[in-house]
Design a protein around this nucleic acid. Sequence first.
DNA 1: TTGACATATTCCGTAAACGGAATATAATCC
DNA 2: GGATTATATTCCGTTTACGGAATATGTCAA
Lengths: 125, 125
Amino acid sequence: MPRPSTTADVFSAIAEPRRRQIIDLLSRRRGVAVGTIVMLLGLPQPAVSKHLGVLRAVGIVSVSKQGQQRLYELNLEQLRPVYDWVKTFDQYWERQLDRIRAKAERRARELSSATGKTTRKKGTT
Amino acid sequence: MPRPSTTADVFSAIAEPRRRQIIDLLSRRRGVAVGTIVMLLGLPQPAVSKHLGVLRAVGIVSVSKQGQQRLYELNLEQLRPVYDWVKTFDQYWERQLDRIRAKAERRARELSSATGKTTRKKGTT
DNA sequence: TTGACATATTCCGTAAACGGAATATAATCC
DNA sequence: GGATTATATTCCGTTTACGGAATATGTCAA
């Protein structure tokens, strides 16, 4: 058994870069026609339709008919498993940010304490 | 061209449920031997080694030798693209939480204002 | 109906992914 | 050295993903 099929699992569905692009696009506008996506992303129409089909299958997007167009919009709550999983490591991300902050502060301190000393030549080890 | 290869793209790498399990496991302990993972997850050893290989290739985990064991540990910063991408929709998640909160509050209000009134029968529209 | 447009589906080919079994490598102990 | 343990790699088979081209469906308009 390979990876869970893209049409059944959110994580697999978003593994495709162009699908993430589509999601990004739909997160900014609502009710976007397929043709618009085709134009904006510069992909062949069947490709877009197929990707939308996958996203539809996992429930990430939903469609509505308007004349001969199909308007797609995001259904972000279907993306929540991903959000939740990543959120698990929040603690870590914050620690990382702290580390970066600390480093910046230390550098700032070093800089200020170096004020008045002779500037080291570049390349001097 | 199928999906970007699991060994090159973080999103593809984490599309595999068992790989996420391994990541979860490694997020709780550091320096875990392969055998431990095999035991804890109940997977065949070659499977684990292969999954670890994928995670290694994307940089999510790193190894160190200790005797004849290989100790794996997480390298979570490699997961940041996922975190960042999902974070994009933070606004949305918060809105969702607000909606849930609001609904709960409304329900609470309804409950308190219903105090003293006769209880509506279930199914009454 | 016919025709133009918007979108979906099908068919085909190629490239991987994953699992399983067997085997290889590498470190340790006798 | 040989045996044992821990881990990695290889080979094979099946399943699936994706892209592209062609085609089908569906909708409007005249």
